[in-house]
C-alpha cells in the first residue's frame, strides 16, 4: 500500500514538474517566435506592412519552380505573416544566442531545416518545418538590420519536394510567395 502511495506521489510530482514544459512545447510556433523576436530585439511587429508592397509582383523564382504560369506555393488561406519594419535589429554580438533561443522556442514539433547567419550585416534566415497531416507547415524567419518577417505557410509535399532542391533559397521563395500582392 505504501509503495502504491509512493508511486502515485512520484507520478503527481512528475505531472506537476512536466506541466509547464508541455504547455510551452505545444504552443503556437508562429506566435512564440514573434514574441521571442520582440523580447530579444525590443521591437514590435505589425500584422499589416507599413510600406506598400505593391511592387512585389509574382516572383520569377516561384514561377521557375512551379514551371509555366505562376501559381501560389502556399495552400490557400494558410499564410500567416508578421512584419517588423524600420526597427533596429542589433544582436550586439549575440547572434548565436538568438539562434539557440529560436531553436529552444520551436523545440519539439518543429524541425530546423536551414539556418543562415551573417552577423556583420545582422542578416539571419531560419526555416523550420513540421508535419501537418498530409501536408507540411513551413515557418520562415528573415531578419535584416532594419526589418524582419515571420511567415508560416502550409505547403503540399509536392511543393516541398521541389523547394528542397535548393533549401538555401526556400525561405526567400516562400516569403516572396506569402507577401505577393495579387492586385
Amino acid at each position: 500500500m505504501k509503495t502504491k502511495i509512493k508511486i502515485a506521489g512520484l507520478v503527481m510530482a512528475l505531472v506537476i514538474i512536466a506541466g509547464p514544459f508541455r504547455v510551452r512545447a505545444s504552443g503556437d510556433g508562429f506566435n512564440d517566435v514573434v514574441k521571442m523576436i520582440e523580447q530579444f530585439y525590443h521591437v514590435k511587429h505589425q500584422s499589416i506592412p507599413l510600406l506598400a508592397r505593391a511592387g512585389m509582383k509574382a516572383v520569377s523564382t516561384a514561377a521557375r519552380i512551379k514551371g509555366g504560369d505562376y501559381k501560389r506555393l502556399a495552400e490557400a488561406g494558410s499564410v500567416r505573416v508578421a512584419f517588423f519594419e524600420d526597427q533596429n535589429f542589433d544582436s550586439r554580438g549575440q547572434i548565436s544566442t538568438f539562434k539557440t533561443s529560436m531553436r529552444t522556442t520551436l523545440e519539439g514539433d518543429w524541425s530546423p531545416l536551414v539556418q543562415t547567419l551573417a552577423p556583420k550585416n545582422e542578416e539571419q534566415t531560419y526555416l523550420f518545418i513540421r508535419d501537418a497531416g498530409a501536408k507540411f507547415h513551413v515557418l520562415v524567419v528573415t531578419i535584416e538590420r532594419r526589418e524582419a518577417t515571420v511567415v508560416q505557410a502550409t505547403v503540399s509535399p509536392e511543393v516541398l519536394a521541389q523547394l528542397m532542391k535548393d533549401p538555401n533559397e526556400m525561405g526567400k521563395t516562400l516569403t516572396e510567395d506569402a507577401t505577393i500582392n495579387d492586385n
Partner: peptide, 28 residues
C-alpha cells in the same frame, strides 16, 4: 561548432533528416 557563428562572417546550417528525405523523395 555552433559558437563559430559569432566569429564567422557567414554561417550556413542545413539539416535534412531521414523523415523529411523519405517524405519528399517519393514526390519526385
Amino acid at each position: 561548432l555552433d559558437f563559430l557563428a559569432n566569429k564567422a562572417s557567414e554561417t550556413v546550417d542545413v539539416k535534412l533528416d531521414e523523415r523529411l528525405m523519405q517524405t519528399t523523395a517519393k514526390f519526385f
